[in-house]
Design a protein around this nucleic acid. Structure first.
Lengths: 178, 178
DNA sequence: GCCTTGTTTTGAGGGAATCAAAACAACTGT
DNA sequence: ACAGTTGTTTTGATTCCCTCAAAACAAGGC
């Protein structure tokens, strides 16, 4: 009943296998977190904690933090920290992908790399740095929020959504902006 | 003597002018913060606070936060939040530039955009998002840390520098890694 | 110079994440 | 199957970074 036979679409290999493969001990909290992470990618520790508690009450928030730290260290999970939000976690690792965040509802989606392996990831002037990783975050409106923002109030749903004008990253060409 | 005649290289226009130009009142704390920001770009609020106090004791940390919020809202400063570090501020705004962070000493440098205005900043699959801004952060070793890391300990200088393997953004081609 | 409005100070508060020690459970080998 | 070892989790506290609110205060317009 602790769910070892998770033959669900989306989780090609059994949860415990990927944990064991990283030389980590397979525990109930870890399985639960990994499952929750599979069901809801780009989740905060808190969110995962909530999900985990449904299946495994008695799990502590610190355990979730610990599990996530172990997972990211082992490379079976990845931690992203978009400006203005708390850390998010995802299982998709090892591939060169980026993220796009909705400035209104904070939804996060994966974005494949534009040009393949190392797109514009080679900086123009690295000033002597030996670059080894690159990270791209896009900001915009998700489809849902586009429709709603069209005729409705321009105000974000959640209280403070991450004001793009304050953090002001690189502005794209304004064509079609408006 | 509160320094209005700052004819220093790096600050082409007087500090008070750029504040006034944004319809913000010119105050001592604001001048001090703007000066500190000019001298030390990519600084945390705390760091700026320390710098400001040298010239203007009695200034509160909250004032610095307030000034920085006003500056970013007005568009005369920009706030960046590299993963694992607290918010950093810089005066360089309006141009499409990115950042490169040393994973050992946390030094931050500006990086011009690789391909001009909108480099690889057009995501491969935006999944319907209306993208309006993009942000790129490179991670690597600064020149100084490269030399030191060559023959010395691979351990970072500051206690916890931001472990790139934990946050694991997109890996560049691994050639020359190791 | 006075008034209005916007800033700064002062003091408190809150969320996210980390740290440390003790209780506990998974794997190893027998 | 079982005991030992090592790695996890719990429990409890704490730190860091940043925000909020009200009162004191100063800049800029008249």
């Amino acid at each position: 009943m602790t769910g070892t036979e998770v033959t669900q679409a989306g989780a090609p290999e059994p949860l415990d296998a990927s944990i064991r493969a990283s030389n980590l001990k397979v525990t109930a909290p870890r399985l639960a977190v990994l499952r929750a992470l599979t069901d809801a990618p780009h989740s905060t520790a808190e969110r995962l904690f909530t999900a985990v508690r449904l299946q495994l009450p008695g799990t502590s928030l610190q355990a979730v933090y610990g599990v996530l730290a172990a997972f990211t260290a082992a490379g079976i999970a990845r931690k992203i920290e978009p400006a203005g939000s708390s850390a998010l976690f995802e299982r998709r690792v090892g591939d060169n992908h980026h993220h796009i965040v909705c400035t209104r509802c904070n939804a996060v989606h994966d974005v494949d790399c534009a040009v393949g392996d190392a797109p514009c990831l080679t900086p123009a002037n690295a000033s002597g740095f030996a670059v080894h990783t690159a990270e791209v975050t896009y900001w915009g409106l998700c489809p849902d929020c586009q429709s709603e923002a069209a005729g409705t109030d321009p105000t974000p749903i959640g209280a403070t959504p991450v004001d793009p004008t304050l953090t002001a990253p690189a502005q794209l060409s304004n064509k079609g902006a408006r």
